[in-house]
């Protein structure tokens, strides 16, 4: 049920800005895993180099947005460059029924876990059948 309503959206305004700045900062869509159980939705996002102070998790208008700026220490002459300073950005449309006030997030080893607990109405319930 949740699968179809979750969409990724690319932030077009960041792409525009990237083209006009001299010092490139690439916008990266972090890879995510999305899990669900009876209690919650769990989003696991890969953000290597992310630090807590640069990370923002926002929930507004049924949309969860994860943003983070990843800086890299510059160390002399670059011989091989596969990493750049990056701006992680990804949004998800969250289905109704998530209790927005109880969303929690933790960052560990460059991986962000966002827990979205379901509200009372969205939880699976066993309905008792009466014998008449």
């Amino acid at each position: 049920m949740v699968h179809q309503s979750m969409q990724k959206t690319m932030p077009s305004k960041d792409l525009m800005r990237r083209e006009t700045t001299a010092q490139p900062m690439v916008t990266v869509m972090p890879l995510v895993d999305i899990f669900e159980n009876d209690e919650e939705l769990l989003i696991v996002a890969e953000m290597p180099g992310a630090k807590r102070e640069n990370l923002a998790v926002k929930f507004a208008n049924d949309t969860l947005t994860l943003t983070c700026t990843r800086q890299l220490d510059k160390e002399g002459t670059l011989l091989l460059g596969e990493l750049q300073p990056a701006e992680y950005n990804r949004s998800f449309v969250i289905p109704r029924g998530v209790d927005a006030s109880k969303i929690t997030a933790e960052l560990k080893l460059g991986v962000l876990n966002v827990h979205l607990p379901k509200g009372e109405s969205a939880r699976a319930r066993q309905i008792e059948v009466k014998q008449l």
Partner: peptide
């Protein structure tokens, strides 16, 4: 994909490698 993606630097006194390893200890 290449894993881990990495940067290699040459400072005058040392080589420095930075590699992305999310979720690894």
């Amino acid at each position: 994909p290449t894993f881990p993606r990495a940067n290699l630097y040459d400072t005058d006194t040392a080589y420095v490698i930075q590699a992305e390893m999310p979720g690894m200890t």
